[in-house]
Simulated scan of single mutants.
Amino acid sequence: MKNFIAESDIVEVTAPADVASGDIVAVGGLIGIAVSSALSGKTVALKTTGTFELKKTSNQAWSSAGLTIYRDASTGLATTTASTNPPIGVNLAVAANPSATGTVRLNGVFGLPSAAQMAAGDA
């Protein structure tokens, strides 16, 4: 294919804030997992596909697999709260309340509004 550029499951972006390896990072409509740590304004690689153990909102129970998981815009944590948070994927395992992490399969398609965002007119 003449117009193919790259697989793009790992992309380099400018870190919007200081990030640690494994953080969920949002840059505009792009969301990925930081491959390494980076200071704000420096280049960081983001993995946009795959399955990860991510930091989550501790006081949420993920009671079944397949729940839509979002990136909490205020905390940067994985959450089941849609609100105005962008979707990042689905959970693959139950996570207790409380628990610090959950297993999430990234959906690889970011910047898509959630149903709540569409209903609120934020999309």
Rank of each mutant, 00 (worst) to 15 (best):
K55Q: 08
T79K: 01
N97L: 06
A38M: 03
A78W: 12
G111F: 13
G29L: 10
A38R: 03
F4S: 15
V27G: 11
T101W: 15
E7I: 08
A15R: 01
A82W: 08
T84H: 14
S64Q: 02
G108P: 11
A61P: 14
V109G: 02
D23P: 13
N107M: 02
S40D: 06
G50S: 05
A17C: 05
T14W: 09
L106W: 09
T75R: 00
A61N: 05
G111V: 05
A93P: 08
I31M: 09
P16C: 12
D72W: 09
G22K: 04
K56A: 14
Y70W: 04
V104M: 15
T68S: 01
N85V: 06
V11F: 00
A116D: 15
T57W: 07
L46S: 02
V35M: 14
S64H: 03
S8T: 14
V44I: 04
W62R: 14
S99M: 04
A100D: 07
N85Q: 10
S99R: 03
V109M: 08
T81H: 06
E7M: 05
G50Q: 00
A100Q: 09
V11I: 07
G102S: 11
I10Y: 11
S99V: 03
A100K: 09
D18K: 04
D122E: 14
T68H: 04
A17P: 12
S114H: 06
T48D: 04
Q117M: 11
D72Y: 06
A17R: 09
S114T: 15
L46H: 07
T81M: 05
L77Q: 03
A65R: 01
T43D: 12
A38Q: 01
D18F: 11
A115N: 14
T79E: 11
K47L: 05
D122Y: 12
V44S: 11
A65E: 09
W62F: 13
S99I: 00
G89I: 01
N107C: 03
A20P: 14
T49A: 00
